[in-house]
C-alpha cells in the first residue's frame, strides 16, 4: 500500500505542521508553508490535521497509487486529474490501485497539498514528519521526492464511502489572491522607523523576487531606512517575521526559517494571513496592513473555533492530537 512517484515534481516534500520544541538546539521548525491547506485536506480524508501530507510545487509529480484510498488536494490550483478526470480542490476523491494522478497546469497559487486517507506512513523525527531540507533530515529520507520513491500509506480499509463527496466549507478556505493585503503586527524595530519609512512599509506594493523559497521571500520595493539603530545581537525569529536587510529591502521568513536572526524586525505576519502569503510566487505582489496583537489573536481564535466545528464533524473529536 503506497504512493509511487512516477515522475518527480520540481519540489515535493513531506510536511506536517512543523517541528516545535527543539529550536533551543537550533532545530528549525520546517513544516507546510500553507498550514491551513495542509490541515483542511487532512480533515477532509478523515486524518488528524497534524498528519503528514505532500507539499507540491508546479510542475508537480505524476503519482501512481498502489492502494485504494480517498484523497484530497487543497491550496494552489494545479489542475489535478486522476486517470484523465478533473479533480476539484477541497473535494475528496477516490483513487484506486493503478490510478495515476497528474497536474496539468498552474491556474494560481504556489503550493498544493495532497492528503490520503489513513495517512502517509512516515517515521517522525523529533516528533514531526516534516522534511528539513537544509539538514537533510525528517520527512522522506530528508529530501525532496524523486522518481521511483515509494511512500507507504498507513493501513486503511480501502475506499470508505463516508469520506467521499466531502468538501470544505468555503468560509474556511483562505481568501487567496495574487495581490493580497496581509495583516502584520509591528515588530520591535518598527519604532525606529520615522513617519516616511512607516509609510513605505504600509503604503507601497512589494514584489516577491525570484530569489524566494521556503526559507524566506525577498521583497523588492523602494528601500526602507531604520533610524539610529544599534546593531542587534541575534534572537529568535518566527515564521512570518519581516526583517530589514542592510540594503533597505525586506525579507519575510517562511516555514524553513532559521531559529534566530539579527536583522531589524519591522513586522510579523499574523497567523491568520500566513496562508495568503505562502501561496505567492515570484513577481506576485503583496502589501502590508498593521493591526495590533490582540486583534491578530482574535482572528486566530475565530478561525480556530470554525476549525473546531469542522474537526468535530470530520473526526468526532474536539482537539487535535498535539
Amino acid at each position: 500500500m503506497s504512493l509511487l512517484i512516477k515522475k518527480p515534481g520540481i519540489l515535493t516534500t513531506v510536511q506536517d505542521l512543523g517541528r516545535y520544541g527543539y529550536q533551543r538546539f537550533g532545530v528549525n521548525p520546517s513544516g507546510a508553508m500553507d498550514r491551513t491547506a495542509a490541515r483542511l485536506v487532512n480533515l477532509l480524508v478523515g486524518n488528524d490535521e497534524t498528519g503528514a501530507v505532500l507539499e507540491m510545487h508546479f510542475p508537480a509529480d505524476v503519482v501512481e497509487f498502489e492502494a485504494d484510498v480517498v484523497c484530497a488536494i487543497g491550496g494552489a490550483d494545479l489542475t489535478a486529474e486522476i486517470d484523465g478526470r478533473p479533480i476539484e480542490n477541497w473535494h475528496t476523491f477516490a483513487a484506486h490501485s493503478g490510478s495515476t494522478l497528474r497536474f496539468k497546469g498552474r491556474v494560481w497559487g504556489s503550493r498544493a497539498y495532497l492528503a490520503v486517507s489513513g495517512g502517509l506512513d512516515i517515521r517522525p523525527w523529533l516528533a514531526s514528519t516534516s522534511t528539513n531540507l537544509a539538514a537533510g533530515i525528517g520527512g522522506f529520507e530528508g529530501r525532496r521526492l524523486q522518481a521511483g520513491d515509494r511512500l507507504a500509506i498507513n493501513c486503511t480499509t480501502g475506499i470508505d464511502s463516508k469520506l467521499l463527496h466531502r468538501a470544505v466549507s468555503p468560509s474556511l478556505i483562505p481568501y487567496y489572491r495574487p495581490f493580497p493585503t496581509v495583516r502584520v503586527i509591528a515588530g520591535n524595530e518598527y519604532a525606529c522607523l520615522n513617519a516616511e519609512n512607516r509609510e513605505l512599509l504600509e503604503k507601497q506594493d512589494f514584489v516577491i523576487s525570484n530569489n524566494s523559497n521556503r526559507m524566506g521571500f525577498r521583497l523588492s520595493g523602494a528601500p526602507i531606512k531604520c533610524e539610529s539603530l544599534a546593531e542587534l545581537v541575534s534572537s529568535a525569529v518566527t515564521f512570518g517575521t519581516i526583517q530589514l536587510l542592510p540594503d533597505g529591502q525586506l525579507i519575510v521568513l517562511m516555514a524553513d526559517h532559521q531559529t534566530t536572526g539579527g536583522y531589524p524586525r519591522l513586522a510579523h505576519v499574523i497567523s491568520r494571513d500566513l496562508p495568503l502569503l505562502a501561496q505567492l510566487g515570484a513577481s506576485d505582489k503583496v502589501a502590508f496592513h498593521v493591526v495590533d496583537v490582540k486583534h491578530a489573536e482574535e482572528l486566530t481564535a475565530e478561525f480556530e473555533q470554525e476549525m473546531r466545528f469542522l474537526r468535530i464533524a470530520a473526526l468526532g473529536v474536539e482537539t487535535r492530537s498535539k
Binding site: I185, S235, A236, T241, H268, I270, E297
Partner: peptide, 13 residues
C-alpha cells in the same frame, strides 16, 4: 510580541 504566537523577553542587547 514577535508574532501572535510568540513573545520575546529581552534582558539587554
Amino acid at each position: 510580541p514577535i508574532g501572535d504566537t510568540a513573545l520575546t523577553v529581552e534582558f539587554g542587547n
